[in-house]
Amino acid sequence: MTLGQDAGRRVVHLTLRGRVQGVGYRAWCAYEARGRGLSGWVRNRRSGAVEAVLAGPADAVDAMVEACRAGPLGARVDDLLLHEAAETALAAGGGAGFAVLETL
């Protein structure tokens, strides 16, 4: 499946690197994801990266991935690594909705 396709449910795992910590990226991501009706989670990594799992209608996930390439004001995304994921990737978030998790 490529970006832009509108076919069913999509689950993706993102790793973002750059200036993505200390700029409100997690709170921004949760707000944007909830506004798009997505479920999943976001957390900081001790490596300095931000990690997220996004799930929902393919078009909404695709739009959120594109938004994540820029992030909130003050962020700089140098690298966005995307992998298709299984529904089991949502388990870390504890269920329905979108969660901000502790740093791992």
Rank of each mutant, 00 (worst) to 15 (best):
G97R: 05
E32Y: 03
R36V: 00
V20M: 02
E102F: 07
A89L: 13
L82D: 07
L104V: 14
E87M: 10
A60T: 06
R19I: 13
E32G: 02
T2P: 09
G24E: 09
A63V: 04
L82A: 11
R43Q: 13
N44F: 01
D6R: 14
T103Y: 05
G35Q: 08
R9S: 14
R45E: 15
A55D: 10
A70K: 12
G18E: 05
A63E: 14
A96W: 09
A33D: 04
G48F: 04
R36A: 15
E87Q: 11
V20E: 00
D59C: 08
D59V: 11
V65P: 05
R17M: 10
G35M: 07
L81Y: 12
E51M: 06
A85W: 02
G8V: 06
S47V: 06
G24W: 10
A27L: 14
R17Y: 05
G40L: 01
V65W: 05
L14N: 00
V20T: 01
P57W: 08
T103S: 10
R26N: 02
V65S: 08
Q5Y: 04
A60C: 09
D6Y: 07
G93N: 02
A99T: 13
M1N: 06
A49W: 13
S47D: 15
Q21A: 09
S47G: 04
R36F: 00
L14E: 00
A89N: 11
A58F: 08
A86C: 09
L81C: 11
Q21C: 12
L73W: 10
Q5W: 04
A7S: 13
N44E: 05
Y25M: 09
